[in-house]
Design a protein around this nucleic acid. Structure first.
Length: 259
DNA sequence: CTCCGGATGT
DNA sequence: ACATCAGGAG
């Protein structure tokens, strides 16, 4: 049941012809046109056709964080809370200690709150995250024997577990195809398609709709696609001074073409 | 829309 | 000092 996709990155090998059948090019084009982007059809096609190479880049250059090697629902759910507005490298540095002390939702209720706060202190947002993890653990123990629920609305029940974290849990723990719109993703799309980045990228309905159409409708590829955008944003397409010369999709990027 | 929270990188 | 980080709430 678990392990139906290849870890850590999912499925990274696919031909362009198959990939095209798994995304909604018409819907993506329509959404992009509503943003006032010229040549929307051509730009969407260019992006989609570059995605197989993007997945190859993930396979060779992606970040192999420990949480990418498991689909254990509690581990995925708790890790998403640890990752909120926090550098992934910071979470990596406490990952082993955290899941040694809190390998299950039950462990969070068994250990003292002070113990929990000590382990996550180096991440910041300690008050927020302590309450989130306690309520998440409680939810898991109430609803399904220590496992997080596989429903979007129920996953969002704990304090400060919102749309992104809930969808990420569905995607990475339950192989449920989801669009994961974070700040990185929005920045990349703004550059690739040449429109002004929304003030709250992860809350923009327009960006969300666009990403929904561009996520391939197959769990292994959807996992790889989402991870590739996270890593591209962190490694190559950084906020300041992006390394366009080493970007696997620069041929389809308006920012690169016009610079 | 605005504001929030903390360690970390620059 | 200031912006950023696998966002979220009011």
């Amino acid at each position: 049941m678990s392990g139906s996709v290849n870890l850590p990155f999912g499925r990274t090998g696919v031909e362009i012809g198959e990939y095209r059948t798994l995304v909604d090019i018409d819907s993506a084009t329509e959404t992009l046109q509503q943003n006032g982007v010229q040549d929307a059809e051509m730009r969407i096609a260019g992006f989609v056709d570059s995605c197989p190479e993007l997945l190859n880049w993930l396979e060779s250059s992606g970040r192999e964080f420990p949480w990418r090697y498991t689909q254990d629902p509690w581990t995925v759910y708790a890790t998403e809370i640890l990752l909120q507005r926090t550098r992934a490298s910071a979470v990596e540095s406490i990952f082993d200690e955290f899941f040694t002390r809190f390998p299950s939702a039950a462990a969070v209720e068994d250990q003292s709150e002070e113990e929990l706060r000590n382990v996550i202190r180096s991440l910041g947002f300690v008050n927020h995250r302590t309450r989130s993890l306690q309520e998440a653990a409680s939810l898991c123990l109430e609803t399904s024997r220590g496992k997080p629920p596989c429903s979007l609305e129920k996953l969002k029940h704990p304090w400060r577990v919102g749309d992104y974290s809930a969808r990420a849990t569905l995607m990475f723990a339950f192989d449920d195809v989801q669009p994961l719109v974070d700040a990185n993703f929005a920045r990349i799309l703004a550059r690739v398609f040449g429109y002004d980045m929304p003030v709250q990228p992860h809350k923009s309905e327009n960006v969300y709709e666009l990403v929904s159409s561009l996520v391939p409708d197959e769990p292994g590829l959807a996992r790889a696609f989402n991870l590739s955008m996270l890593d591209l944003g962190a490694i190559v397409c950084s906020p300041e001074s992006p390394a366009c010369h080493q970007c696997p999709i620069n041929a389809a990027c308006q920012f690169y073409q016009s610079s």
